[in-house]
């Protein structure tokens, strides 16, 4: 346990973060892409994951009575806020759910069982998150969704940042905020580079740590690693690919991700140390080793665009410059070294 103690390290950037009684806002983004969950069902069931997240949320709420939470779900077709609910929606949905659960099972196992011994705030969050999440999972057209390859991670991050901005910065509520992204990830997932990077920069500027917990087999999410690295968040890959297992998720969440932003400068974070800093080509969306950079807008290309114009800023490149890039006897045309 002593290993976590990082107080020996220099406390930089901490002048404005005195250890006071400031509450914090936790924004959790949950992957609601059903086929991905189905793929890893042998390791962790979706309902166990949901239960783990709820325990984590309750733990966060228990740490300070002004702590608050925001839950966002995303799949390939979009992202939406699950908690806090829009006013009015809560009651009807949970009623519907109660009726439904009673008709399907005997109602005893349903999470909305009338347990009056439970702390009221926990109960509200638990019920709303479950109702809304199941609702999202049930009402998605998986076939249509599958045609979309772009995941809505950037959309979910934007929602989270927007929520935080409204409740922390606009309302000046003197709260700290952080984002936890729980992603399963699937093989064909493509993260939109520019929107995601923009979210990362925004979070970095607002000093909001972005934590990522990756459960599934999806390809290495370079940009998410960069997100954690640049915002001083925690990146943990607990998928089989990283020879770990998402079993015991609640333990990972409670021991790895519970630390409040105010504590972060003082402890050693269980994050991944070697981060891949490469960028993606704007044309092919692939991560590039060596590529071209637009001198006007810094857009990255792995090949010379066929129309000789920048795909982002529409600058027409001069024939002379382009000719200079691909002269004989050396046919290959590569530029600038992007060091890993």
């Amino acid at each position: 346990m002593n290993a976590i103690d990082g107080t020996s390290r220099q406390l930089k950037d901490t002048e404005d973060q005195t250890l006071d009684d400031t509450p914090s806002l936790l924004s959790i983004i949950i992957d609601a892409h059903v086929p991905s969950w189905e793929e890893i069902k042998s390791q962790i069931s979706i309902s166990e994951a949901v239960a783990s997240i709820l325990v984590f949320i309750n733990a966060h709420l228990a740490l300070h009575n002004s702590n608050s939470v925001n839950v966002i779900g995303y799949n390939a077709s979009g992202a939406r806020i699950l908690y806090p609910p829009k006013s009015g929606v809560e009651s009807t949905r949970s009623k519907e759910r109660e009726e439904r659960s009673e008709s399907v099972s005997d109602g005893e196992q349903a999470p909305s069982k009338k347990d009056h011994s439970m702390y009221r705030q926990f109960k509200t969050v638990d019920e709303v998150v479950q109702t809304e999440l199941w609702n999202m999972l049930n009402h998605t057209n998986y076939v249509e969704e599958e045609k979309q390859h772009n995941s809505a991670i950037s959309g979910a991050l934007s929602l989270a940042l927007g929520f935080i901005n409204k409740h922390v910065f606009v309302d000046e509520s003197r709260m700290r905020a952080r984002i936890l992204l729980l992603t399963v990830g699937h093989k064909n997932e493509t993260i939109q580079y520019i929107p995601t990077m923009n979210c990362i920069f925004a979070a970095q500027k607002l000093k909001i740590p972005v934590d990522v917990c990756k459960l599934g087999p999806g390809s290495d999410q370079v940009f998410l690693q960069q997100a954690c690295d640049s915002t001083h968040g925690i990146y943990m890959d607990i998928s089989e690919k990283n020879s770990k297992t998402p079993k015991g998720l609640v333990q990972y969440l409670l021991s790895g991700f519970i630390s409040d932003p105010s504590l972060r400068p003082h402890i050693v974070l269980p994050t991944q140390s070697n981060v891949d800093f490469r960028a993606a080509c704007f044309l092919t969306k692939q991560v590039v080793d060596i590529g071209y950079v637009c001198s006007v807008c810094l857009c990255i290309m792995s090949q010379i665009p066929s129309n000789r114009r920048c795909p982002t800023c529409d600058t027409t490149y001069s024939e002379k410059t382009l000719a200079g890039l691909g002269r004989k006897p050396l046919k290959k045309k590569k530029k600038k070294v992007v060091k890993p």
Partner: peptide, 12 residues
């Protein structure tokens, strides 16, 4: 899968 999960939630 979703339905089975929905019907058999894991209690906290």
């Amino acid at each position: 899968y979703v339905h089975s999960q929905y019907d058999n939630p894991v209690s906290l």
